[in-house]
Every structure is written in structure tokens, then in C-alpha cells.
Design a protein around this nucleic acid. Structure first.
Length: 421
RNA sequence: GGAGGGAUGGCUGAGUGGUUUAAAGCGACGGUCUUGAAAACCGUUGUGGGGCCUGUCCUCACCGGGGGUUCGAAUCCCUCUCCCUCCGCCA
């Protein structure tokens, strides 16, 4: 949610930022609604002030006849006020609809560009291909080794689902445990959250109303399945006023993620790259406004270290204006090289949301006792999406005979398995 | 699933239609006192919106959420959510 006051005072700045995203934002409509709203509010409040004063007088009148006369005089005022309040409610709701559809302002340093084809590769770390044989894609490796079973996923649930077996399931669990432990060492506090949340919680993280079509929902209980840990973690401090002395607050969370992927129908249908259910370890930060830039760089480094420690070749991209997500002001993507698919896989996306999410979720902080509350800044970054990390590990650690070596850092969780064969 | 009880400010806790303009206590902050501190005493103490005469200013809303009754609602009515106690069932 953008600051209405910013739209009022610097509409041109807001318009320019929206234009960089390729949007024609209805700023004029917002401003005229705002003017109407204030006019209605003034009128309604004057009536309320008068009514309050008279009602107070009535309470003090002792003479019954005089009292009845005064009460009769007041009849009808309530209806007038109710009518104004009703119009105000309508204006408010129109305003809310408009404002909640506007994405975050972009950081000025975000490069221009219309879509993902214009994202900027900042650097590539590691060699792009070193395998001395023809590498296979993970779906062939996984099926041959019996660690990924696609037919079973279809049998149980449908397309885009799969079952992991034996060392495959264990490898994923090892990745999750290792990543969580790594992030804890990097200063994040582990949290385990619900995977289903109420509508308010989805709104607070910026998922609703805009991304409704991509979410699973239980209609009977009105609960929504989380599409990312970012959703519950953002809301951990919803409607709270934090103490500046306790910030930054850094969290890491493992959750499954549920996405309908309606927009991606027919895309990435092979393998485990894009499923309706996948696991992810997330990093999240609540910071003071002046610290969010530094927190973004730290989080990017923490995510990079995860790739590096796994021995994966990766590259860091800065997203261009047209590709930065709805709630973010700036985003880095980290992609790892998958030699079997001959493809860069997006495994992490690290974003600074500024005060955009905090405004929606009403997460504030106080600099000192008595100071006015201010909105916190929030940041989120995947500590790597599991299926894509699995793909990268399988394809990079494959050997000529189709077996897969276990990366060194994961061995403590693999129960002595050195090679999956 | 059944029965009952609750939700009031940072916290505890009064308040059942108009001196409540939400008491009181605790905590926090400021001051007096003190070499310093404690104690004591005095004072301050929420959030959000709007206005202009930009002020130690005026005003509106907020007592779990929403709706209603009334000239007037923390208080009465309806409804939802959450919490607690007991019973049943249960991983």
C-alpha cells in the first residue's frame, strides 16, 4: 500500500514510477476521490460535533417537557449523519480498491526495462559447464534411480505432482535442515508457522486481492494455503508497534508453498521445476528504514553463500523496472546452472519491500518512548526453493554412470550415503 | 460436537443508558529533592483521521470485529471471531 499523503504531495513522482513498470496508474482518480472524501468527512464531523454537544445538554436538563422538546428537535439528525457516513463508506471503499491495486514505488536504482528479457546480469560465479560427459536432465536421473516418481504424483493428486522416494526424499530433507541451520548461523531466528492463513493475512503480505487466482483456498473455513513463507512471517508482527532497540528482526522459515500456476499452464511441465506444491526455506527481515538497503545486500549474500556452499555455479541478476514484483521496490534474482536441462534456474529472489508491506500489515516501530510510530521496512529472500535446488544438485553432481554424489555439506544428514545409486 | 464463562488503554482492573471528558493501581517518561542513586512527592502518558486561526489549538472515530436500537451506547439487542472451564471424541 502506498502512502496516500505521498500521492497527494508528489503525484508526479508516483506516476513516473508506475510508468516505469509499464502501468498507467489512476492517480487522478485517487486525488479526486480524496478531495470528495475530505469534503464529506468535514460535513459529517460538523454534524456529529453538534449532535454530541446537544446530547450532552439533554442529559443535564431536569425539566421533562423541556427535555422532550430538545429530543424532538434532535430527531432526524442521526439519519442525516448516517446518510453521510454511508456515502463516506462508499468513497473509502473505492479508494481502498484503487490504492490496494497500486504496486510499490521502484527504487531509483532499478534499471529500466519492460520484462524479464531486460534484467541485468550483475555477475556469474563459477564455471558454466565442467562435466566430462553428456549430462542428463534430472527427470531421467531421478526416474532411473527410483528417487522421483511422477506417475505416483499423478495417481495421488494430478499433474504437476510427484513423489520422492528413499535417498531423494532424504536429500530434500537434508537440504531443508542444512539451509535452516545455515541461516540460523547467519543471524536469523527459525520460525515454524501455519501453512493456512486467513484472508487478512494474505492481504497484509500483498497477495490479495491481486493474486487471488494463483492461490488455493478452503471455502468452507475461508482459509488460504500459503504460496510462500513470506505471507505468515510478514504477519507475525501485524498490528504491532515494535521497539526500535529490538530491530532488525531476522527470521527464517521452512514451509511448503502452494500455487495454482494458472498463468504458467503448459510451461515447465517436465520434471519438478514447477509444481503446485513445493518446499522453500525463506529469509525475512523487519528493519528500520535506514537499514533496509544494507539488509538487502546481506540477504543477497546469505542466499549466494547457500549456492556457493553447495558448489553450484550461479549468477546474480538485478530485475529491471518491468519485472520487479508488486510489493517490492527492488529485487535480485539468483539463478543456478542446471547442466542437464542446459538452463539457468531461478532458485532465489531477494527483495526490499520498503514500507509497502508494513503499511498493509500495519507493522510499525517506535524510535524511543513517546515518539510517533513509523512503518518498518520488510525484506524477503528465498533461502532457496527446494525443487530447483534439488534439480541443480542432481544435475551438477551426476556421474557418468547415472549415479549422484552427495554434496559435502549435506552428508551429515544423509546417514552415510555418499553416492545415490 | 455439547454446556457454561469471558474479551475495557503498555499491563492489572472498575464501569449495566447522560458529572465517564473511560476510575484506580502498576509500569514507562519528565521534574523536585540528592554528591549519585533509591524512596517520597508533583506532572505527563494510546492509535488513526480531518480542519485551520500551525496551537499548551479545534474536531471526529476507536472499550475483540461487524450491524442495530436511541437525542445520546463501553453499557441494551443481533451476529461473527477469539480465549478460558467442564464433558465427549481424537493424531
Amino acid at each position: 500500500m502506498l502512502d496516500l499523503n505521498l500521492i497527494r504531495t508528489q503525484p508526479d513522482v508516483v506516476l513516473a514510477s508506475m510508468a516505469r513498470r509499464g502501468l498507467d496508474a489512476p492517480i487522478d482518480e485517487v486525488l479526486s476521490l480524496d478531495a470528495r472524501r475530505r469534503a464529506l468527512l468535514t460535513e459529517a464531523e460538523q454534524l456529529k460535533a453538534a449532535r454530541n454537544a446537544v446530547s450532552k445538554e439533554i442529559g443535564k436538563i431536569k425539566d421533562a417537557a423541556e427535555k422532550q422538546a430538545k429530543i424532538a428537535e434532535q430527531k432526524g439528525v442521526g439519519d442525516k449523519i448516517a446518510a453521510l457516513d454511508e456515502r463516506l463508506r462508499q468513497v473509502d471503499s473505492e479508494m481502498f480498491t484503487l490504492l490496494s491495486a497500486l504496486p510499490n514505488l521502484l527504487d531509483a536504482r532499478v534499471p529500466d526495462g519492460k520484462d524479464d528479457s531486460e534484467n541485468v546480469v550483475l555477475r556469474t560465479v563459477g564455471p558454466v559447464s565442467t562435466l566430462p560427459f553428456e549430462p542428463k536432465p534430472h527427470w531421467e536421473l531421478g526416474t532411473a534411480l527410483g528417487i522421483i516418481n511422477f506417475e505416483e504424483g499423478v495417481k495421488l493428486t494430478g499433474s504437476r505432482f510427484y513423489v520422492l522416494h528413499g535417498a531423494g526424499a532424504r536429500l530434500q530433507r537434508a537440504l531443508i535442515a542444512w539451509m535452516l541451520d545455515l541461516h540460523i548461523r547467519q543471524g536469523y531466528t527459525e520460525v515454524y508457522t501455519p501453512f493456512m492463513v486467513k484472508e487478512e493475512t494474505m492481504f497484509g503480505a500483498g497477495q490479495l486481492p491481486k493474486f487471488r487466482d494463483n492461490l488455493y483456498r478452503d471455502v468452507e473455513e475461508d482459509l488460504w494455503m500459503v504460496p510462500t513463507a513470506e505471507v505468515p512471517v510478514t504477519n507475525l508482527h501485524r498490528d504491532e508497534i515494535l521497539d526500535a532497540a529490538d530491530m532488525s528482526k531476522l527470521y527464517t522459515a521452512y514451509t511448503p508453498c502452494f500455487r495454482r500456476e494458472k498463468m504458467a499452464a503448459g510451461r515447465d511441465v517436465r520434471g519438478i521445476k514447477r509444481g503446485h506444491q513445493f518446499d522453500k526455506v525463506e529469509m525475512y527481515a523487519f528493519t528500520l528504514p535506514e537499514n533496509s538497503d544494507a539488509a538487502l545486500e546481506k540477504m543477497r549474500e546469505d542466499a549466494e553463500l547457500t549456492c556457493a556452499a553447495l558448489g553450484l555455479t550461479y549468477r546474480v541478476k538485478q530485475l529491471c523496472a518491468g519485472d520487479v514484483g508488486f510489493a517490492a521496490r527492488t529485487t535480485y534474482d539468483i539463478e543456478v546452472w542446471a547442466p542437464g536441462q542446459q538452463e539457468w534456474l531461478e532458485v532465489s529472489s531477494v527483495s526490499n519491500c520498503g514500507d509497502f508491506q508494513a503499511r498493509r500489515a500495519n507493522v510499525r516501530f517506535r524510535r524511543e518512548a513517546g515518539a510517533r510510530p513509523e512503518f518498518a521496512h520488510t525484506l524477503n529472500g528465498s533461502g532457496l526453493g527446494l525443487p530447483r535446488t534439488m534439480i541443480a544438485v542432481m544435475e551438477n553432481y551426476q556421474q557418468a554412470d547415472g549415479s549422484i554424489a552427495v554434496p559435502k555439506v549435506l552428508k551429515p544428514w544423509m546417514g552415510g550415503i555418499e553416492v545415490i545409486r
